[in-house]
Amino acid sequence: MIEMKDISKVYENGVVALDHINVSIDKGEFVFIVGASGAGKSTFIRLLFREVLPSSGALIVNGQDVVNMEHGDVPYLRRGLGVIFQDFRLLPDKTVFENVAFAMQVIEAPRRRIQHSVNSVLDIVGLREKYSCFPSQLSGGEQQRVAIARAIVNSPALVIADEPTGNLDPDTSWEIMDIFKKINGGGTTIVMATHDKEIVDIMKKRVIAIEDGHIVRDEAQGAYGYEN
């Protein structure tokens, strides 16, 4: 699913975010990316959906060569991915239904399919009844669930999440993680950057730890490994 070979990223201000990284992630895996702030986690995540380009190295995501991709092909790469952020990034003047449907309108899906798919993902995240609410009428956890619904509505092969529980209390975080588990159970690959020690330790999934731009640990059923 993800093939990273000798990837480095040096920003224009000279900061080395990633230094010769090699990672291979298979289809259906659930991977945590851990590390201190500024260790390169965020850069790692953003490379995957081509928000940033690597300075050197090769990167294949979902069968597509991310590095040598034409600008016009980037949207098609992203249609095969679902992206979730710490700050939800919902459109405040659209309802729950519209926010999720938006991801399908953008790829010009037929209306009937939009109706059907949006309702079914809202079922998955448990927000079917709140379809007509606006984001401001929802709790943080509910907003993140809308964002997850939007990310998976086009049935992506890979879901990328950048600190999805960073703004949520522990109980709500677990509700969110249950949804991710459900999605992963359906065969979707999940790559998640997180600071949440408890979640990583209990989930016992593959953990990749990044420090100063290097991978210092890559364990199949790892633990967070740092003190919070």
Partner: peptide, 16 residues
């Protein structure tokens, strides 16, 4: 701009 950014994340083409 948030709207534009979200459109890009979900795979909207530039012309869309």
């Amino acid at each position: 701009r948030t709207e534009v950014a979200i459109m890009k994340y979900v795979g909207a083409t530039d012309w869309f």
